[in-house]
Design a protein around this nucleic acid. Structure first.
Length: 206
DNA sequence: CAGCGGATGTGCT
DNA sequence: GCACATCCGCTGG
């Protein structure tokens, strides 16, 4: 169904929402007349209190409480003193879950304009937020209504997708760090380098 | 309230 | 491949 993704889309098992977000388009309004569109090509599922890699593992702390709240809201956090990361909250209210958006491809307008600026880099969760000007100010935004940030299905066919372990969560121990909760479009040049390694062993899903 | 380390990215060796 | 930038959330005392 093309159009704005409704709350029911997010209010499902996190792993399923993660897969289904691949190929969907983030629509970002940044103040000016500027509207940026970006097709999601890499995501990770972060589950509830049992997931040792998830911010929800310690329960509803001030930072992570939003992961326990209503689906379809933006969870933005700040890491390493310099980067923001964008997630969408999943699962019914009271159940924690979120999908981290790791990479996207800029959606070119019908008439590509050469304004002298390089294309916006959206490969990697930190760069994606930089490119879309997403900060902590966007934490809590309802992405189920057209506004500063929402997501649409533009009707393009579901892309071929693959899975791997999540990136940078070794601290959570083998049980959770090795689980294949990262999903990506292997054909996309925007998917980070380690994916090229994963590409060979990546399992095809669906 | 001090200390620690992170769902990252870049640049140099 | 590894150091490091740079700040905040969380833990433990």
């Amino acid at each position: 169904m093309p159009g704005l993704l409704p709350r029911a889309f997010y209010e499902r098992p996190t792993e399923q929402v993660a897969r289904d977000l691949l190929g969907k388009v983030i629509v970002r309004r940044t103040g000016q007349p500027a509207i940026l569109r970006a097709r999601i090509v890499e995501v990770e599922a972060y589950l509830g209190v049992a997931d040792a890699a998830s911010h929800a593992r310690r329960g509803p702390t001030p930072r992570a409480a939003i992961m326990f709240g209503a689906a379809g809201h933006a969870y933005v956090y700040f890491v390493y003193g310099m980067h923001h990361c964008l997630n969408f909250v999943t699962e019914p209210e009271g159940v924690a879950g979120a999908v981290l958006i790791r990479a996207a491809e800029p959606v070119e307008p019908a008439e590509p304009v050469d304004d002298g600026f390089p294309p916006i880099a959206l490969q990697g969760p930190g760069k994606l937020c930089r490119g879309l000007s997403i900060t902590l100010a966007d934490k809590g935004v309802d992405v189920c209504a057209p506004g500063v940030l929402h997501v649409i299905d533009d009707g393009t066919p579901r892309p071929r997708l693959a899975s791997s372990a999540r990136i940078g969560v070794d601290y959570s121990g083998p049980r959770w760090s090795r689980r294949r909760l990262r999903f990506f479009v292997p054909d996309s040049p925007a998917v980070s380098g380690s994916a090229r390694f994963s590409r060979a062993s990546a399992s095809r899903c669906r």
